[in-house]
């Protein structure tokens, strides 16, 4: 009984919203075209995915391709951001001279919204995958970087002492002590970063790319297809949720040693 309830727990709030939304939009409070009810959205979405009755017109049956091209941009930009953010973060956190020389520049670039890079991104990379990947990179890079720096700086000095007592070289300290000690913090950054990555792919696709979920969203807006706009939004939400789940899975595998020792592992 409780097990059954647990599996439904997370569906309660979304279901409630859907039902309320259906009722409001069918009540005629707003013109139906401005707020299509969930059933209509689901219909259009279904056709977009499976292509059964051309409701989605030109997009009919093209969902997988659209989702895939967005996902590839996210993966590329996020991958570059994760690797470079972690490496640079460890360097800044560990070596004072790197911090002194690099950090001021980083801190000046950080408050600049990634979106404001769009004009330059288009000039530099043209209209295709590259500006989108660049934007995704910008969005994910800073959270990963900042959290990695924090993780390195708060690593327990006594563990470093213990390792150097056992003859660790500086490189070994970084690999066998500092990196694992910073890992919980690094994962916090990775999780913030993945959200930013999806936001920026969609933004880039609305402006600078002619494919992907963001492009469909903006295109449908021009054609007054608000059902498809909503279906795109839902698709982005679902994919974002799924990728975050993937990172969470990776995290609990990498940080399994924390089980039972932190609040996060508490039952309830």
């Amino acid at each position: 009984m409780t097990a059954l309830w647990k599996s439904w727990e997370r569906a309660v709030v979304p279901l409630f919203i859907l039902v309320a939304w259906e009722i409001v939009s069918r009540s005629g409070l707003l013109p139906a075209a401005l707020l299509p009810p969930p059933t209509v959205v689901l219909h259009a979405w279904g056709d977009w995915v499976f292509g059964f009755d051309e409701t989605a017109q030109g997009n009919s049956g093209r969902w997988l391709a659209d989702a895939l091209s967005s996902a590839v941009r996210v993966a590329a930009g996020y991958g570059i951001a994760a690797v470079s953010g972690i490496l640079l973060g460890i360097a800044i956190g560990w070596w004072r001279w790197v911090e002194r020389t690099v950090e001021p520049t980083i801190q000046m670039l950080r408050p600049v919204p990634p979106v404001s890079w769009i004009p330059l991104a288009i000039i530099w990379f043209g209209i295709a995958n590259k500006p989108a990947i660049f934007l995704v990179f910008l969005g994910a890079f800073f959270p990963v970087l900042m959290n990695t720096i924090h993780g390195v700086k708060t690593a327990d000095r006594n563990l470093i002492r213990a390792a150097s007592m056992m003859g660790a070289t500086e490189q070994q300290l970084l690999r066998h002590v500092v990196f694992p000690a910073a890992l919980p913090s690094i994962f916090a950054g990775l999780r913030i970063g993945i959200g930013a990555a999806w936001m920026l792919t969609v933004t880039a696709e609305m402006v600078a790319v002619k494919s992907g979920l963001g492009y469909v969203l903006w295109d449908s807006y021009y054609f007054l297809r608000y059902d498809l706009v909503l279906a795109s939004m839902a698709s982005i939400g679902l994919l974002g949720y799924a990728t975050d789940g993937l990172i969470k899975l990776l995290m609990s595998a990498a940080l399994h040693w924390q089980h039972g020792s932190t609040l996060q592992s508490r039952e309830g």
């Binding site: 006594n158 002492r161 213990a162 007592m165 003859g167 694992p180 890992l183 940080l255 040693w257 924390q258």
Partner: peptide, 21 residues
């Protein structure tokens, strides 16, 4: 002139790597 494996140390706190068994 620095720590080394020729001198084993047992610390006041155990200082174990929490991520290793």
């Amino acid at each position: 002139d620095g720590p080394g494996a020729d001198r084993g140390m047992v610390f006041q706190q155990a200082n174990l790597m929490p991520w290793l068994p």
